[in-house]
């Protein structure tokens, strides 16, 4: 049995939600005040995930960094590993917003995509 606490970030109220977990499985959850809050807290307690935003090197433009993002949330513990892959990426213009840079990164089902258009 494990007790966990978090502050809900869905709205500015900032409810303190607490939970009891057993072998990673949620047994009890309370403190939330709305359905969205409950959903957020459940996921945050069991399998937290995050959109990753970063940049990669790009040639041929006045800016040297292309902003990229994951097109869906990645498991939180994977973020550093993904960064290490992005660090070794080198691209060239032109690039369109939404263009896939790395497909299904680390088998997560999420793609790393460009988050802006970049021409010469």
């Amino acid at each position: 049995m494990e007790e966990k606490k978090l502050i809900c970030v869905i709205c500015p109220v900032g409810c303190e939600v607490s939970a009891t977990l057993e072998d990673g499985e949620l047994k009890d959850i309370n403190g939330y005040r709305c359905a969205q809050g409950e959903e957020y807290a459940r996921e945050e307690f069991t399998s937290p995930s995050r959109i990753l935003t970063a940049t990669v090197w790009i040639k041929g433009s006045r800016v040297s960094q292309l902003p990229v993002r994951s097109n869906r949330p990645l498991p939180r513990p994977k973020l550093e590993e993904v960064m290490a892959l992005l660090a070794r990426e080198k691209l060239e213009v032109p690039i369109k917003e939404g263009q896939i840079i790395i497909e299904n990164i680390l088998g997560t089902g999420a793609d790393i995509v460009s988050s802006r258009d970049l021409e010469k």
Partner: peptide
Amino acid sequence: CIHNGFGLQYFSAELTGTE
């Protein structure tokens, strides 16, 4: 602003600043 968190109200989508 390469980070996300933009557009939730105006576009009902979670965008990065660049998007």
